[in-house]
Protein backbone atom coordinates (compact mmCIF):
# COMPACT_ATOMS: atom_id res chain seq x y z
CA UNK A 1 0.00 0.00 0.00
CA UNK A 2 1.39 3.40 -0.93
CA UNK A 3 0.23 6.91 -0.12
CA UNK A 4 1.02 8.08 -3.62
CA UNK A 5 -2.12 9.37 -5.33
CA UNK A 6 -3.24 7.70 -8.52
CA UNK A 7 -3.47 11.03 -10.33
CA UNK A 8 -1.35 13.96 -9.27
CA UNK A 9 -1.92 17.28 -11.02
CA UNK A 10 0.56 20.04 -10.20
CA UNK A 11 0.61 23.67 -11.25
CA UNK A 12 -1.48 23.07 -14.34
CA UNK A 13 -1.85 26.17 -16.51
CA UNK A 14 -3.87 26.40 -19.70
CA UNK A 15 -4.11 29.38 -22.01
CA UNK A 16 -6.72 29.42 -24.76
CA UNK A 17 -6.04 32.39 -27.00
CA UNK A 18 -5.44 35.32 -24.67
CA UNK A 19 -7.44 33.78 -21.83
CA UNK A 20 -5.66 32.21 -18.88
CA UNK A 21 -8.23 29.46 -18.27
CA UNK A 22 -6.45 27.36 -15.64
CA UNK A 23 -4.15 29.04 -13.17
CA UNK A 24 -1.76 26.93 -11.16
CA UNK A 25 -4.29 24.14 -10.63
CA UNK A 26 -3.03 21.43 -8.30
CA UNK A 27 -4.88 18.49 -6.81
CA UNK A 28 -4.55 14.77 -6.25
CA UNK A 29 -6.96 11.91 -6.81
CA UNK A 30 -6.73 8.86 -4.58
CA UNK A 31 -7.10 5.41 -6.04
CA UNK A 32 -10.65 4.05 -5.79
CA UNK A 33 -14.03 5.72 -5.60
CA UNK A 34 -15.28 8.89 -7.22
CA UNK A 35 -13.62 12.27 -6.82
CA UNK A 36 -15.76 15.22 -7.82
CA UNK A 37 -14.43 18.20 -9.75
CA UNK A 38 -17.04 20.82 -9.03
CA UNK A 39 -17.72 24.47 -9.65
CA UNK A 40 -19.99 26.87 -11.50
CA UNK A 41 -20.24 27.00 -15.27
CA UNK A 42 -17.14 28.22 -17.05
CA UNK A 43 -14.66 27.90 -14.18
CA UNK A 44 -12.38 25.46 -16.02
CA UNK A 45 -13.62 21.99 -15.08
CA UNK A 46 -13.83 20.67 -18.64
CA UNK A 47 -10.52 22.35 -19.49
CA UNK A 48 -8.94 20.59 -16.53
CA UNK A 49 -9.97 17.19 -17.88
CA UNK A 50 -8.83 18.15 -21.37
CA UNK A 51 -5.57 19.43 -19.91
CA UNK A 52 -4.95 16.14 -18.12
CA UNK A 53 -5.39 14.30 -21.41
CA UNK A 54 -3.41 16.82 -23.44
CA UNK A 55 -6.30 17.84 -25.65
CA UNK A 56 -5.34 21.45 -24.90
CA UNK A 57 -1.86 22.88 -24.58
CA UNK A 58 -0.83 23.07 -20.98
CA UNK A 59 2.12 23.53 -18.69
CA UNK A 60 2.67 21.92 -15.32
CA UNK A 61 2.76 18.31 -14.32
CA UNK A 62 0.27 15.45 -14.60
CA UNK A 63 1.36 12.15 -13.08
CA UNK A 64 -0.49 8.87 -13.21
CA UNK A 65 0.80 6.44 -10.59
CA UNK A 66 4.03 8.39 -10.59
CA UNK A 67 4.51 8.49 -14.37
CA UNK A 68 4.68 11.92 -15.97
CA UNK A 69 2.10 12.26 -18.75
CA UNK A 70 2.59 15.78 -20.04
CA UNK A 71 5.18 14.88 -22.65
CA UNK A 72 3.06 12.13 -24.16
CA UNK A 73 0.65 12.53 -27.07
CA UNK A 74 -3.04 12.15 -26.25
CA UNK A 75 -3.33 8.54 -27.40
CA UNK A 76 -0.35 7.52 -25.26
CA UNK A 77 -1.84 9.26 -22.20
CA UNK A 78 -5.01 7.25 -22.77
CA UNK A 79 -3.04 4.04 -23.23
CA UNK A 80 -1.44 4.58 -19.84
CA UNK A 81 -4.92 3.95 -18.42
CA UNK A 82 -6.89 7.18 -18.68
CA UNK A 83 -10.44 6.76 -20.01
CA UNK A 84 -12.37 9.82 -21.15
CA UNK A 85 -16.08 10.50 -21.37
CA UNK A 86 -16.46 13.97 -22.89
CA UNK A 87 -19.12 16.50 -22.03
CA UNK A 88 -20.80 16.32 -25.43
CA UNK A 89 -20.61 12.51 -25.50
CA UNK A 90 -18.84 12.70 -28.87
CA UNK A 91 -20.17 9.40 -30.14
CA UNK A 92 -19.34 8.73 -33.77
CA UNK A 93 -22.73 9.45 -35.27
CA UNK A 94 -22.17 7.62 -38.56
CA UNK A 95 -20.93 4.46 -36.84
CA UNK A 96 -23.18 1.87 -35.26
CA UNK A 97 -23.28 1.34 -31.52
CA UNK A 98 -21.28 -1.87 -31.96
CA UNK A 99 -18.66 -0.05 -34.05
CA UNK A 100 -18.38 2.74 -31.47
CA UNK A 101 -17.65 0.12 -28.83
CA UNK A 102 -15.30 -1.88 -31.05
CA UNK A 103 -13.28 1.25 -31.71
CA UNK A 104 -12.65 1.63 -27.98
CA UNK A 105 -11.24 -1.88 -27.56
CA UNK A 106 -7.56 -1.91 -26.66
CA UNK A 107 -5.05 -3.52 -24.39
CA UNK A 108 -4.28 -7.15 -23.81
CA UNK A 109 -7.19 -7.93 -21.49
CA UNK A 110 -10.50 -8.85 -23.13
CA UNK A 111 -13.01 -5.98 -23.30
CA UNK A 112 -15.65 -5.89 -20.56
CA UNK A 113 -18.73 -6.40 -22.69
CA UNK A 114 -20.40 -8.30 -19.85
CA UNK A 115 -20.16 -5.29 -17.56
CA UNK A 116 -21.23 -2.86 -20.29
CA UNK A 117 -24.29 -4.88 -21.26
CA UNK A 118 -25.17 -5.48 -17.61
CA UNK A 119 -25.18 -1.71 -17.01
CA UNK A 120 -26.71 -0.74 -20.34
CA UNK A 121 -28.73 -3.65 -21.76
CA UNK A 122 -30.23 -1.25 -24.30
CA UNK A 123 -26.89 -1.08 -26.10
CA UNK A 124 -27.00 -4.77 -26.93
CA UNK A 125 -30.44 -4.34 -28.49
CA UNK A 126 -29.29 -1.30 -30.44
CA UNK A 127 -25.91 -2.68 -31.50
CA UNK A 128 -26.67 -2.28 -35.21
CA UNK A 129 -28.21 1.18 -34.86
CA UNK A 130 -26.30 4.30 -35.97
CA UNK A 131 -25.17 6.16 -32.84
CA UNK A 132 -26.31 9.46 -34.34
CA UNK A 133 -29.93 8.27 -34.25
CA UNK A 134 -29.87 7.54 -30.49
CA UNK A 135 -31.38 9.80 -27.85
CA UNK A 136 -29.09 11.90 -25.67
CA UNK A 137 -29.34 9.42 -22.83
CA UNK A 138 -28.53 6.47 -25.08
CA UNK A 139 -25.56 8.34 -26.54
CA UNK A 140 -24.33 8.94 -23.00
CA UNK A 141 -24.53 5.20 -22.42
CA UNK A 142 -22.37 4.60 -25.50
CA UNK A 143 -19.87 7.19 -24.33
CA UNK A 144 -19.66 5.69 -20.83
CA UNK A 145 -19.54 2.17 -22.25
CA UNK A 146 -16.51 3.02 -24.40
CA UNK A 147 -14.59 4.01 -21.27
CA UNK A 148 -15.82 1.11 -19.16
CA UNK A 149 -15.07 -1.45 -21.84
CA UNK A 150 -11.32 -1.18 -21.38
CA UNK A 151 -9.95 -3.10 -18.39
CA UNK A 152 -6.65 -1.18 -18.70
CA UNK A 153 -8.35 2.10 -17.76
CA UNK A 154 -7.23 2.94 -14.24
CA UNK A 155 -8.96 6.28 -14.04
CA UNK A 156 -11.98 7.59 -15.92
CA UNK A 157 -12.34 11.31 -16.58
CA UNK A 158 -16.09 11.80 -16.88
CA UNK A 159 -17.44 15.19 -17.86
CA UNK A 160 -21.01 16.10 -16.94
CA UNK A 161 -22.56 12.73 -17.73
CA UNK A 162 -26.06 13.77 -16.63
CA UNK A 163 -26.16 17.06 -18.50
CA UNK A 164 -29.36 17.46 -20.49
CA UNK A 165 -30.72 14.02 -19.59
CA UNK A 166 -34.24 13.16 -18.46
CA UNK A 167 -34.63 12.21 -14.77
CA UNK A 168 -34.87 8.52 -15.68
CA UNK A 169 -31.57 8.58 -17.55
CA UNK A 170 -29.97 10.66 -14.78
CA UNK A 171 -30.75 7.86 -12.36
CA UNK A 172 -29.49 5.20 -14.79
CA UNK A 173 -26.25 7.06 -15.35
CA UNK A 174 -25.75 7.69 -11.63
CA UNK A 175 -26.30 3.99 -10.93
CA UNK A 176 -23.84 3.09 -13.67
CA UNK A 177 -21.21 5.44 -12.27
CA UNK A 178 -21.59 3.89 -8.85
CA UNK A 179 -21.01 0.47 -10.39
CA UNK A 180 -18.14 1.76 -12.55
CA UNK A 181 -16.39 3.09 -9.47
CA UNK A 182 -15.95 -0.52 -8.39
CA UNK A 183 -13.67 -1.23 -11.37
CA UNK A 184 -11.90 2.10 -11.87
CA UNK A 185 -11.18 5.37 -10.11
CA UNK A 186 -13.36 8.20 -11.40
CA UNK A 187 -12.71 11.92 -11.64
CA UNK A 188 -16.20 13.28 -12.19
CA UNK A 189 -17.25 16.72 -13.37
CA UNK A 190 -20.87 17.11 -12.36
CA UNK A 191 -23.08 20.19 -12.20
CA UNK A 192 -26.00 18.35 -10.61
CA UNK A 193 -25.10 18.65 -6.95
CA UNK A 194 -27.73 16.12 -5.99
CA UNK A 195 -26.02 13.50 -8.12
CA UNK A 196 -22.55 14.63 -7.04
CA UNK A 197 -23.35 14.48 -3.35
CA UNK A 198 -24.73 10.96 -3.78
CA UNK A 199 -21.69 9.63 -5.68
CA UNK A 200 -18.65 11.63 -4.71
CA UNK A 201 -16.29 11.04 -1.81
CA UNK A 202 -13.53 13.61 -2.22
CA UNK A 203 -14.28 16.93 -3.88
CA UNK A 204 -12.22 19.59 -5.59
CA UNK A 205 -13.88 22.92 -6.29
CA UNK A 206 -12.68 25.28 -8.97
CA UNK A 207 -13.46 28.96 -9.24
CA UNK A 208 -12.16 31.21 -12.01
CA UNK A 209 -9.56 28.65 -13.02
CA UNK A 210 -8.18 28.09 -9.52
CA UNK A 211 -8.69 25.40 -6.93
CA UNK A 212 -10.60 26.94 -4.02
CA UNK A 213 -11.52 23.80 -2.08
CA UNK A 214 -10.09 20.35 -1.52
CA UNK A 215 -11.82 18.05 0.91
CA UNK A 216 -14.75 15.72 1.23
CA UNK A 217 -18.18 16.28 -0.25
CA UNK A 218 -19.56 16.02 3.29
CA UNK A 219 -17.45 18.99 4.39
CA UNK A 220 -18.55 20.93 1.34
CA UNK A 221 -22.20 20.13 1.89
CA UNK A 222 -21.95 21.16 5.50
CA UNK A 223 -20.66 24.62 4.66
CA UNK A 224 -23.56 26.64 3.18
CA UNK A 225 -21.43 29.70 2.56
CA UNK A 226 -18.79 27.75 0.62
CA UNK A 227 -21.43 25.97 -1.43
CA UNK A 228 -23.23 29.23 -2.19
CA UNK A 229 -20.07 31.08 -3.08
CA UNK A 230 -18.42 28.51 -5.34
CA UNK A 231 -21.22 26.25 -6.53
CA UNK A 232 -24.05 28.75 -6.71
CA UNK A 233 -26.26 26.72 -4.41
CA UNK A 234 -28.88 28.58 -2.39
CA UNK A 235 -28.73 25.90 0.26
CA UNK A 236 -25.90 23.42 0.42
CA UNK A 237 -26.86 19.85 -0.20
CA UNK A 238 -29.68 20.70 -2.60
CA UNK A 239 -29.42 20.51 -6.36
Amino acid sequence: MTNEPLLDVRELDVFIGESHILQNVSFAVREGGITGLLGRNGVGKTTTLRGILGLVRRTGSVRLAGEELTRLPVHEVVRRGVGYVPEDRDVFAGLTVAENLRLAERGSAPPRYDLVYELFPELRERAAQKAGTLSGGQQQMVSLARALLVPDNRILLIDEPTKGLSPLYVKNVADALQRAAMVATILLVEQNFGVASRLVGDAIVLDQGRVVFRGTIATLSADPELARQHLGLATAGHA
Binding site: L53, L55, P73, V74, H75, V78, R79, Y84, P86, D90, F92, A93, G94, L95, E99, R102, L103, A104, R106, R146, V150
Partner: peptide
Protein backbone atom coordinates in the same frame (compact mmCIF):
# COMPACT_ATOMS: atom_id res chain seq x y z
CA UNK B 1 -13.20 1.94 -38.74
CA UNK B 2 -10.56 4.34 -37.43
CA UNK B 3 -10.64 6.32 -40.67
CA UNK B 4 -14.45 6.56 -40.66
CA UNK B 5 -14.41 7.66 -37.03
CA UNK B 6 -11.54 10.07 -37.67
CA UNK B 7 -13.46 11.70 -40.49
CA UNK B 8 -16.15 12.55 -37.89
CA UNK B 9 -14.03 13.48 -34.88
CA UNK B 10 -10.27 13.10 -34.99
CA UNK B 11 -9.66 14.32 -31.43
CA UNK B 12 -12.07 11.75 -30.00
CA UNK B 13 -10.30 8.96 -31.87
CA UNK B 14 -7.07 9.99 -30.13
CA UNK B 15 -8.97 10.17 -26.83
CA UNK B 16 -9.78 6.48 -27.28
CA UNK B 17 -6.06 5.70 -27.27
CA UNK B 18 -5.66 5.33 -31.02
Amino acid sequence: LIVRAGVENRAMVSALGI
